[in-house]
Structures are given as C-alpha cells and as structure tokens.
C-alpha cells in the first residue's frame, strides 16, 4: 500500500516538472504545488509523521489531521487564485482602456494626414 502512495507522489512531481518545463505553469505559481508534492512524498515515505503529529496536538484519529491540512491548503490556494484573478481583471481593464484610446489616436492621426 505504501508503495502506491510513493508512486503517486513521484508521478505528481513528474507531472509538475513537465508542466513547468512546457511553460504551462508559471514558476511563480508552481512553488506552492512543488511544496505540496514534496510534502506528499515525505508523508508517503514516512507515514508515522502523521501519527506522531496528530498525537502531539491531541487528535485521536490521525487521518483527520490529513484532511484538515488538505482542506486548509485548498482554501489557501483558492484565496491565492482569487487574488491573481483580481489582479488580472484589473490589468485587462487597463489594457482595454489603453487599447481603445490608442486606437482612437491612431484613427485621428490618419484622418489628419489624409
């Protein structure tokens, strides 16, 4: 069973590196995912870490800790993405406005030349 988790983690890391290589994932956004993949690999090699961590913070059912961390990670990631989307739409608005103004200036210049 443990071998399956290790294979999954390694496969995940390989897919990540391929995506970065093909520039489908920008480096600045890949950090979080690389970190996630490495943590996944460490935990699959040494699953006892989960047990001892859960024990030390008083969680009886160790997998619950895994779920908790997983959900928190997802929420953090979604927040991060929303920030990126907000920045992007701000940029798109600016670009659209600039494009409209420049197009108008070009049109006026052409008209005054002819």
């Amino acid at each position: 069973m443990q071998a399956l988790w290790i294979i999954t983690s390694v496969a995940f890391l390989i897919v990540l590196i391929m995506l970065i290589n093909r520039r489908l994932l920008r480096e600045q956004y890949s950090m979080l995912w690389l970190l996630f993949g490495v943590v996944m690999l460490i935990l699959s090699v040494r699953p006892q870490i989960i047990d001892s961590l859960a024990d030390s913070i008083g969680i009886d059912y160790a997998p619950a800790l895994l779920f908790l961390v997983g959900i928190l990670f997802c929420v953090a990631l979604i927040l991060h993405l929303t920030v990126i989307v907000s920045k992007l739409s701000e940029k798109v608005i600016r670009l659209t406005q600039e494009l409209g103004i420049l197009h108008h200036e070009l049109h006026e210049r052409k008209r005054s030349e002819s």
């Binding site: 608005i93 659209t96 406005q97 600039e98 494009l99 409209g100 103004i101 197009h103 108008h104 006026e108």
Partner: peptide, 24 residues
C-alpha cells in the same frame, strides 16, 4: 470623437476610459 472598447467593460470601465483621456 469615438473610442471603441474591444470588449464590454461596463459603465464604470467606459467612463474611466473617458477620464483617462481627459487626464492625458
């Protein structure tokens, strides 16, 4: 004068285009 925006930005985005033009 007509400034045509390539996509629909909504009234605020359109008005701001005008203000940016006025500013410039």
């Amino acid at each position: 004068y007509v400034i045509t925006l390539p996509t629909n930005l909504g009234i605020g985005g359109a008005m701001q285009t005008g203000y940016r033009y006025a500013y410039r």
